[in-house]
Design a protein around this nucleic acid. Structure first.
Lengths: 119, 119
DNA sequence: TTGTAATATATAAGTTAGTTATATATATGA
DNA sequence: TCATATATATAACTAACTTATATATTACAA
């Protein structure tokens, strides 16, 4: 379980992933986000800092998130959390991602006799 | 069922989609590919010609596909099919896409008590 | 004690996969 | 005759990344 997912495929998914995490966890800092993404994806998704911080800055600029700075262990930590507007946007992006996954699922899983069910 | 999937999310998925179709259908021409993608995705994925043809030309240049030209109804049609090398590459790309979908599925579907089963 | 890895953020330069716009040409039906 | 469908092609642009670099503290091992 080590093969990373290629960055071409991941392109466009990073922002939704970040919004989803913020939606679920409420308050996170950048470094924490990269660690969680790596852990949750079992190492298959690695968010580089060169991608992460520009995305976070843009989200702040667009008033999707607000920041709080804290000094922890003498190091600066910037916490991000969704604004009300950002929370709505987040729901939208998550729905869009789910539609994307469902649609690609149809295209890539033509295996018959397999469906979703409650267990 | 009309909302198109955003091009940001789709970025990187178009090539795998094309390879998957060629793998399944054997021989297709460009216009046909766009129609099938639109139909299979219920209108949610629209492959523009500005994206399609450069991808097909690159696949040919990389010897992933070979072409056959035919005149149908006085119009030129360029058929594409996978080379043996392309067929291998295709399997690889399809596996990668499946891993991608599975991983994003984990991140975006934390709903419990729902699993895959045979019907 | 010295150096490496982990923690933490930031940004500039380059790549590339797409979009948008445009071009060409035939067939079909209103 | 005029719009729509069929069919391919490419040039110019955009944006989301990668790669590389920079800075600074903490923790741990040789």
């Amino acid at each position: 379980m080590k093969n990373k997912i290629s960055s071409e495929l991941l392109k466009g998914s990073l922002k939704p992933i970040i919004l989803k995490l913020l939606k679920e966890q409420g308050r996170m800092y950048g470094y924490e986000i990269t660690q969680q993404v790596e852990e949750l994806s079992k190492g298959k998704i690695v968010l580089t800092y060169g991608a992460l911080y520009p995305i976070l800055h843009k989200l702040e600029n667009d008033e999707i998130v607000i920041t709080e700075q804290e000094i922890v262990n003498n190091r600066t930590r910037v916490y991000y959390k969704l604004t009300p507007k950002g929370s709505e946007k987040s729901v939208e992006k998550i729905r869009e991602m789910e539609a994307f996954l469902q649609t690609l699922g149809i295209l890539f899983k033509p295996s018959p006799n397999v469906g979703l069910c409650n267990t």
